[in-house]
């Protein structure tokens, strides 16, 4: 197989509050011999919040990010569900509306850039599963996580709106019964846990303005995983991770029950199975201790 190569859009979180996510992404890419060219020029995607304020500006900034991936002639991979949503949504809107695309390009021309629509935007989870291949990963596993029940937490913006997911990625994902992360868990040798909240919202986006709603959602998710015998959770989204890993106290208070589980980033889980060390995967950066390795 030709060596896989992507333009990496890190997003902001991986460079700040989830350093372990950046470390584990690079460690896994190295193990799988995937080349990642970091888009150091990229700006924040707006996280669906700048979008509430200034729609056009958000489009211009995201189109600029994609334009840099296009310059490399590479597919862009994201490592955050919300980056994926906002980048893929920008692509979707510009590719469908030539008038809007022209308006955006008029602005980008001021800085010598152009959005063409030639680069796909996919989440790293699907790069691993669809492009690299689950079977190949399975064969590379040196430390199967066979003693663990792992609860997949998909995060909204990778699976909804499903139309956007299916347009961006090679394989469809059923938003009511997603399977990609379950399949990856099984490929890593672990048992995947079935529970009601696996495709539900973690509440991250309203943590400041509606803390109660946010905390109940987080609490329900961890409780659902716990009640179905999960030893830990795994997520492809750093924002879900922040919520599930750092907000357990508020979550417990909101649902009136102590909840807390170790939460892995998808990359960390794969990294562990492929034999990366806890240090390479940044496990010490978790607030809820990852105490099983």
């Amino acid at each position: 197989m030709k060596k896989l190569k992507y333009a990496l859009f890190t997003g902001c979180t991986a460079r700040q509050s989830t350093p372990e996510q950046m470390m584990s992404t690079l460690a896994v890419a190295k193990k799988l011999d995937i080349e990642l060219i970091e888009l150091t020029e990229a700006s924040c995607c707006g996280a669906s919040h700048l979008q509430d304020y200034d729609d056009f500006l958000s489009l211009v900034l995201n189109a600029r990010n994609i334009a840099y991936a296009e310059k490399h002639g590479l597919t862009m991979v994201t490592i955050c569900n919300t980056c994926q949503l906002n980048t893929a949504m920008t692509k979707h809107r510009l590719d469908k509306n030539s008038e809007l695309k022209a308006k955006v390009n008029e602005k980008l021309a001021e800085v010598g850039l152009e959005y063409k629509g030639t680069s796909n935007v996919i989440h790293f989870l699907y790069a691993i599963i669809d492009d690299f291949g689950l079977d190949k990963i399975k064969k590379m596993v040196v430390k199967p996580l066979s003693q663990f029940n792992i609860a997949p937490f998909y995060g909204c913006h990778n699976i909804r709106p499903s139309e956007l997911h299916d347009e961006s990625h090679k394989q469809k994902e059923n938003p009511y019964n997603p399977t990609s992360l379950d399949d990856l868990i099984i490929a890593c040798g672990a048992m995947s846990v079935e529970y009601e909240e696996k495709n539900k919202c973690c509440g991250f986006h309203v943590e400041l303005q509606a803390p109660h709603t946010a905390s109940v959602l987080t609490g329900n998710a961890i409780a659902g995983a716990t009640d179905n015998n999960a030893d830990m959770m795994v997520t492809p989204c750093p924002l879900c991770h922040l919520k599930l890993d750092t907000q357990t106290k508020h979550a417990s208070e909101a649902i009136g029950r102590e909840v807390s589980l170790p939460v892995l980033h998808m990359q960390q889980m794969v990294g562990l199975a492929l034999g990366c060390t806890p240090a390479e995967l940044g496990l010490k950066h978790h607030v809820t201790d990852v105490n099983f390795v």
């Binding site: 902001c12 979180t13 460079r15 700040q16 509050s17 990229a42 700006s43 924040c44 707006g46 996280a47 919040h49 700048l50 509430d52 304020y53 200034d54 500006l57 900034l61 400041l208 303005q209």
Partner: peptide
């Protein structure tokens, strides 16, 4: 002018200053 609206506008300030979000 409340926590919700400032949360949206804050992204603009941050991006203007750093390009990235200052969490």
């Amino acid at each position: 002018n409340n926590v919700a609206t400032r949360h949206a506008v804050g992204f603009l300030h941050s991006i203007r200053k750093h390009g990235m979000l200052d969490e």
